Amino acid sequence: MAKELLINCYLFFFKIIFTICKGFSLRNKVVFVCSYTDNSQFVYDEMMYRKIKTDVVFLCRGKATLAHFTKTGELVIPFETTNVLLMIRSAYHLATAKLVIVDNYYGFLSVSTFKKKVTCIQLWHACGAFKTFGLKDRSVALRSARAQVRFTAVYRHFDKIVVGSDAMEKIFMRSFGLDETHFVHLGVPRTDLFFDLTKKEQMIKSLQPLRREKKIILYAPTFRDHPMEEDNFGLDLKIMEKELSNEYVLLLRLHPAERGKLDFSGLNPKFVIDGSEWDSVNELLLGADLLVTDYSSIPFEYALLKRPMIFFPYDLSAYERSRGLWGDYIKAVPGPIAHSTQEVVQIIKRNVFDLNQIAAFSEKWNRYSTGQSSSQVVDYLTCCLNK
């Protein structure tokens, strides 16, 4: 109840400020509202490569995102803070931009009515989904009626949503309550990295000091609501080290919300490596020989590399009850399933994977992501700016 009250107060003041700022004229300006870095960075880089003449502003939620985009030299403003001055600056740029690009759910959209010539584009941070979100997230039913109205209002502000597949479009339609007219099949910009042979080689070389002539297992569990600790994040690291350290190193990539919450001091640094500080998880995927994950969206991109994956839904029943999953998870994943650390170890040791299954999975979820997505998205954005 207290959280809902704070949200409503924030949005009330934001609406007032935004409405006042709409009195200013629109400018030839693109505002990126970012919780993540990859998609916005790829689009921005393509815009700079083409020397598109437009102002650019980054509104950043989270310290990592803020630090990342500060390097561009563009105007970067912390977003969704209680600082009134920052709120005014954010509202001003949103109210005067021709193009607003978001990568997540943002409550401000529920109280911000853009001018007719403004286009709001959703550049979602994932290529596919196992877990439900949006209106289909089971936790939504537990929220207040006012909150549910707010969610719907946010989604209705997405003029267009960029997708990489028909499969993801169908999920978005159900999650956001929108019809097919809201979607553009341009591919996901961050996937362009997987078609860059030079970048692949660079990433593999950069991980050589960690690899030490061994193979890299990347463990990337999805975010969970309970606190992250060594004994409750799935894998038993001591068993993994005992059974696999002769041939492998284990790279842990925790969700951004969980960075710094796992104490690595008691772990063997020659086997367990903290990969959470890398800006881009996709760069780590380029260097990994094997992925172990659960309900994360990472496999949808990793499938482009046609490399082995193991799915470790150690809390499948509980997770499905609390969060919800799309369809039959067991049938949906493109790799062997393990329910214990010992099963993970045995699958790795057997080293038998169906790469054709992974290729089919990639074809389904990355249909429009063919290495030209950033260019295609910028083509579309240019049309929006010039209309």
Results as ranks from 00 to 15, higher is better:
196 D>Q: 02
230 E>Q: 13
236 D>M: 05
194 F>R: 14
262 L>I: 03
175 S>V: 10
203 M>H: 06
251 L>D: 11
240 M>K: 07
229 E>S: 11
258 E>Q: 15
178 L>S: 09
184 V>T: 05
209 P>G: 01
185 H>F: 14
193 L>I: 03
268 N>R: 13
184 V>D: 04
209 P>E: 07
258 E>F: 00
242 K>C: 12
237 L>S: 12
234 G>E: 00
235 L>G: 01
203 M>T: 08
251 L>K: 07
228 M>E: 08
253 R>V: 10
200 K>I: 10
252 L>W: 06
256 P>N: 09
268 N>T: 08
172 F>Q: 03
214 K>M: 12
228 M>C: 15
250 L>G: 10
269 P>G: 01
173 M>A: 13
202 Q>R: 09
274 D>C: 02
255 H>M: 15
249 V>T: 11
197 L>E: 14
223 F>D: 00
195 F>A: 03
247 E>L: 13
216 I>M: 15
247 E>P: 00
219 Y>L: 06
236 D>Y: 14
218 L>Y: 08
231 D>S: 14
259 R>N: 10
183 F>C: 05
257 A>T: 04
245 S>N: 13
274 D>S: 10
192 D>H: 11
206 S>N: 12
249 V>R: 15
231 D>A: 13
184 V>F: 00
199 K>C: 14
172 F>W: 09
198 T>H: 11
183 F>I: 06
182 H>P: 04
242 K>D: 11
172 F>C: 00
180 E>C: 14
222 T>A: 11
180 E>Y: 14
171 I>M: 15
237 L>C: 10
171 I>L: 15
250 L>N: 04
247 E>S: 15
277 E>N: 14
219 Y>H: 01
219 Y>W: 03
269 P>Q: 04
245 S>L: 06
183 F>Q: 04
274 D>W: 01
183 F>P: 00
230 E>Y: 15
175 S>R: 12
262 L>Q: 05
275 G>I: 05
193 L>W: 11
269 P>K: 03
265 S>V: 04
173 M>I: 00
244 L>A: 12
256 P>E: 11
281 V>W: 10
255 H>G: 07
213 E>I: 12
221 P>H: 08
190 R>Y: 02
194 F>N: 01
216 I>F: 05
220 A>W: 00
229 E>M: 13
226 H>D: 15
276 S>V: 03
268 N>F: 02
280 S>F: 06
217 I>H: 03
242 K>T: 01
221 P>R: 01
183 F>A: 11
274 D>H: 04
171 I>A: 13
218 L>P: 08
196 D>R: 06
265 S>I: 03
264 F>P: 10
181 T>Y: 12
195 F>P: 04
259 R>D: 01
254 L>K: 08
183 F>N: 01
215 K>V: 02
275 G>S: 02
222 T>H: 01
178 L>K: 09
183 F>K: 02
245 S>F: 05
213 E>R: 14
265 S>D: 00
272 V>N: 01
225 D>I: 06
241 E>V: 06
224 R>F: 08
252 L>I: 08
267 L>H: 05
190 R>W: 00
175 S>Y: 06
263 D>M: 05
219 Y>D: 05
242 K>L: 10
184 V>G: 00
213 E>C: 08
190 R>Q: 01
192 D>I: 06
215 K>F: 11
184 V>W: 01
250 L>W: 06
228 M>N: 03
257 A>K: 15
210 L>V: 15
259 R>L: 05
274 D>Q: 12
269 P>I: 07
227 P>T: 11
220 A>E: 00
175 S>N: 13
222 T>I: 08
